[in-house]
């Protein structure tokens, strides 16, 4: 899933200084799960805004909403009509960046601001901890590396590691918190009886699938342009 962190409160508040009727919209999917952008966070942020603006002597109207997923039209339609009907003049979304874009594309003249910094595709490692696992590079390499991604999980994105900074299984970038992924790959391949695979140098990666050629799109023929 997509992991995100709250932006500093002051930054978000700064976006809103010149608006009166503000809608904060959460997302019931990834950002709920990573405890950054669900219904509960919407309420907390909204309450915080009311208090903070109130202390500045400004009485703004802060409204709240949360949709099941901000990255699908059907789910965001009610938000769009709310913006129209309730004369909202700014929207803050605490979905990931996808939600910000998705709303911005559809909101006409109403500005939309991010309440979160979207950080990575990751997994919940233990309660309260998420870690990056995939970089969305468009050409999955993990068959070569025992299922462990060097693109996402190596600090230097090395395809043929480890580098000289690998020490006692830890990455030099932050030895206290980061495992050297090439150590993990080594251990994994050893358990799989495939250590020999490491003799093969992985060829330079074709990065076109990751970024090249403009915005990436995916089409499923069996549903696309259905009438």
């Amino acid at each position: 899933m997509i992991v995100a962190d709250p932006k500093p409160f002051g930054q978000v508040k700064g976006y809103l200084e010149n608006f009166e009727r503000i809608l904060i919209v959460g997302c019931g999917a990834c950002t709920t799960v990573c405890l950054a952008g669900g219904e509960a966070e919407v309420r907390l942020l909204a309450s915080g805004m009311r208090i903070a603006f109130g202390r500045d002597g400004q009485s703004k109207t802060i409204l709240e909403d949360c949709v099941q997923r901000q990255c699908d039209v059907e789910f965001v339609l009610p938000v769009l009509s709310r913006v129209d009907n309730e004369k909202i003049d700014a929207v803050v979304t605490i979905a990931c960046g996808v939600g910000v874009n998705f709303l911005a594309d559809r909101l006409g003249k109403t500005p939309v601001f991010p309440g979160l910094n979207t950080t990575f595709y990751g997994a919940g490692m233990e309660p309260g901890l998420w870690a990056e696992m995939c970089a969305g590079c468009g050409e999955c390499m993990t068959a070569l590396t025992g299922g462990i991604c060097p693109v996402a999980r190596c600090s230097k994105h090395l395809l043929n590691g480890p580098c000289g900074g690998s020490e006692k299984g830890k990455c030099e970038v932050d030895p206290a918190n980061i495992d050297c992924v090439w150590q993990l790959i080594y251990d994994r391949l050893k358990r799989l009886g495939r250590l020999d695979d490491l003799q093969n140098i992985i060829a330079p990666k074709d990065w076109r699938t990751a970024a090249d050629g403009g915005v990436r799109r995916t089409i499923r023929e069996h549903l696309y342009k259905l009438r």
Partner: peptide, 8 residues
């Protein structure tokens, strides 16, 4: 309908 199955 709001539950995301987040396990919290």
């Amino acid at each position: 309908e709001h539950c995301a199955g987040c396990l919290t």
